[in-house]
Design a protein around this nucleic acid. Structure first.
Lengths: 135, 135
DNA sequence: GTTATATTCAACCATGCGGTTGAATATAGG
DNA sequence: CCTATATTCAACCGCATGGTTGAATATAAC
């Protein structure tokens, strides 16, 4: 059951699509950090860094907890796992040498279609991404 | 050797952070598809869908090849593998029951700090994301 | 050659994103 | 109480993104 809704994966991958945020995750892999600690390495305002952290929170990649006057963040690995699960669906394409086989088939096709016969492969659609519960 | 530069991962994860594009990848998992075929399920102009495909190309998730008057797309699994590799670094956080252990430690800490002694854990920084070759 | 099909290109538009600054809030410490 | 520290909030800005439309290009079909 690798079923996550679109919005979740959107925000998740969007959160991962920024090197500052990935850097913060990497830092959090070393243990809990305060907002200030996470922000410090970056050449941007604290407010900007804090926004990045909020994005990570929104994607449930990070949990923030107030402790006295500082807010400490911790990595929330389940979200990362969700991303990994999604990717796992495509694992067969690189794991088994299926891609090599694909290449051979494609090349054979190219040669075939250039010598005549059209539309040999890929005419069938998989059930269309059903408009609101995709991926 | 799981070393990819920031920009690559930025564009890669950004490309994955859109459900239309993920839907297209899913479709391409079924084999080669033309631009028109990929665009058809979506309630947007062909031009818009084509732009999505270009984003996928830019992230090297898809290879497009002109064949006659149509352009056929194929899945390029190495890029997906890159994303998977990046995630793998964090696998330990959810695979081994290390996260559970972490929870226990954290709770213990919370109790400890609420009963007195401050700043027990997480004072050490891992080497800071070195500003241009991070993640 | 003309027409239809498949796709791109260019200009444009609204919205969101990553950043800034300055003020507000809340806790800790002298 | 007053001040310093840690963080958020709100307003603003420039730029990228995701979408549109209409014209351009190239191949296929008649």
């Amino acid at each position: 059951m690798v079923e996550y809704n679109d919005a979740t994966l959107d925000t998740l991958f969007h959160a991962l699509g920024d090197s500052t945020r990935r850097g913060m995750l990497h830092e959090l892999a070393g243990g809990e950090r305060t907002v200030g600690q996470l922000a410090e390495p970056y050449a941007m305002s604290l407010a900007a860094a804090a926004k990045h952290i909020q994005v990570l929170e929104g994607a449930r990649l990070v949990h923030k907890e107030r402790r006295g006057r500082m807010h400490v963040c911790r990595l929330e690995p389940q979200a990362l796992r969700r991303a990994s699960d999604w990717l796992r669906y495509y694992e067969r394409f690189w794991n088994t040498r299926l891609d090599v086989l694909e290449n051979l088939l494609r090349d054979a096709d190219a040669k075939a279609s250039s010598t005549g016969a059209a539309g040999t492969r890929a005419p069938r659609r998989t059930p269309p991404p059903p408009k609101g519960k995709r991926s």
